[in-house]
């Protein structure tokens, strides 16, 4: 295939993904908006006013970056995992397998689709947060880089999950038992400076902590970790997961007999 043909194929996948999640917006775009509004009201306004400042910012301002990141992470992941798994399940993945679209373009298409939803929801949530607090911008490139790379990373994660899944249960195990706990313990709601030494060290192996903090650094200028280390780490993870995903696609386990 010529480069322009590959580009067309890639865009076709991305557009189909966008069509899918906008068609079922009450399942994909509405829930995170509602959940986040609840977080803003309850943690930000009601409880937050009693918690007092965190790292020099009022509680609401402190948690907003984390909550945006949380929405981006879960939506990027669940878009790819549910879309790719249902393609596998309905066997419409065969439409792609018979086509000359190279594997890397298939992967890139799904990842971009996951990013479209993750970032789309991120924008929705950010706009909603403006009703509750004022957002500042400390370091714009850092904000953009972190959110894009994180979204890409979790889209890849969702892809691997979908490749490995053999039944519908398998696509909710990782989000429920790994992603959600890691996010809640990843410094969305508190600074790990508050934790006892032991738990602080434990928290340091949680990759989501780095992403949340790098993003918060971009907005507020405060972070529990070095944001550049965080960025580097995300890049390493992306490379590893991308290689694993491509290998899986090439071997075709679960999609080719």
């Amino acid at each position: 295939m010529s480069p322009s043909a590959v580009l067309t194929a890639f865009l076709t996948i991305v557009l189909r993904e966008i069509r899918r999640f906008t068609r079922i917006w009450p399942q994909t775009l509405l829930p995170p908006a509602v959940t986040m509004c609840l977080y803003f009201v309850i943690f930000g306004n009601l409880i937050g006013s009693r918690i007092g400042p965190m790292e020099g910012f009022d509680y609401m301002s402190f948690i907003v970056p984390g909550l945006i990141m949380m929405a981006v992470i879960t939506n990027s992941y669940s878009n790819v995992v549910s879309s790719f798994f249902s393609m596998k399940f309905q066997r419409s993945i065969e439409e792609l397998l018979v086509s000359p679209t190279p594997n890397w373009a298939i992967l890139a298409g799904y990842v971009a689709g996951g990013m479209a939803r993750g970032l789309g929801v991120g924008v929705i949530v950010t706009l909603l947060s403006l009703a509750f607090t004022r957002l500042q911008i400390h370091n714009l490139p850092m904000i953009v880089l972190t959110v894009f790379l994180t979204s890409a990373l979790f889209s890849l994660g969702g892809f691997i999950n979908a490749m490995l899944a053999t039944k519908f249960d398998d696509i909710s195990i990782v989000p429920t038992f790994i992603l959600t706990p890691l996010t809640y313990l990843g410094g969305v709601f508190y600074s790990i400076q508050m934790l006892p030494d032991f738990w602080r060290s434990v928290s340091m192996v949680n990759p989501i902590l780095y992403m949340v903090n790098a993003f918060r650094y971009g907005i507020l200028g405060v972070s529990d970790v070095n944001p550049y280390v965080a960025l580097g780490m995300i890049l390493v993870f992306i490379t590893v997961l991308a290689v694993v995903s491509l290998r899986m696609l090439q071997r075709g386990k679960g999609i080719r007999s």
Partner: peptide, 29 residues
């Protein structure tokens, strides 16, 4: 290829299914 079993996305529109397939072959919209 026309496979033995139905293998399209049941929820997608007929027209979208066919144009999307063309896209996978690199044919512009």
């Amino acid at each position: 290829v026309v496979p033995q079993e139905f293998n399209f996305n049941q929820f997608e529109k007929v027209f979208d299914i066919v144009t999307t397939q063309a896209g996978y072959y690199g044919i512009p919209l």
